[in-house]
Simulated scan of single mutants.
Amino acid sequence: MHEMSIAEGIIQLLEDHATTQDFRRVKQLWLSIGELAGVEIDALRFSLDVVTRDTLADGAQIHIQRVPGQGWCLACSSPVTVHARFDACPQCGKYQVQVTGGDEMRVAELEVE
């Protein structure tokens, strides 16, 4: 389950920024996770519940925004919504879709004290 290592990486990122930006506690955390990032949201929530215990994010509200997958079809020159990598273009049916978005993972916002 790679979601546990993602959650641990998020906590490490928060701890690093707490040192450089001088905050002691994270009250709310907003994450932006792309639909094509390969992250199971329920597993990530569970992992975050586990790894935030006894850290600066213990008890923080965690908000996860799912970002839809986006692509560009090289065959029909159209922007398309992509739900899985290597799917056919929903407009022309060809398999020449290049992913242009929705594969990112980022901490979008923090509320700290």
Rank of each mutant, 00 (worst) to 15 (best):
E3Q: 00
A7F: 04
A7H: 04
E8C: 12
E8N: 10
E8D: 10
G9P: 13
I10M: 05
L13W: 07
L14P: 07
L14F: 04
L14Q: 01
D16E: 12
A18V: 02
T20A: 01
T20R: 05
Q21E: 13
F23M: 10
R24Q: 15
V26F: 02
Q28E: 15
L29W: 10
L31R: 00
G34R: 03
L36D: 01
A37N: 09
A37H: 09
G38N: 05
G38S: 02
V39N: 01
V39T: 08
E40P: 11
I41R: 00
D42M: 02
L44C: 04
R53P: 13
T55A: 02
A57M: 09
G59D: 13
A60R: 07
I62H: 02
I62W: 01
H63F: 13
H63I: 07
I64L: 09
V67C: 11
G71D: 00
W72S: 08
L74H: 11
L74W: 15
C76F: 04
S78E: 08
V80L: 03
V82S: 06
A84G: 01
A84T: 14
F86L: 15
F86Q: 06
D87K: 03
A88M: 07
A88R: 14
C89P: 10
Q91C: 10
C92E: 14
Y95H: 15
T100K: 01
D103T: 03
V107E: 09
V107C: 13
A108P: 14
L110F: 12
E111Q: 10
V112W: 13
E113Y: 15
E113Q: 10
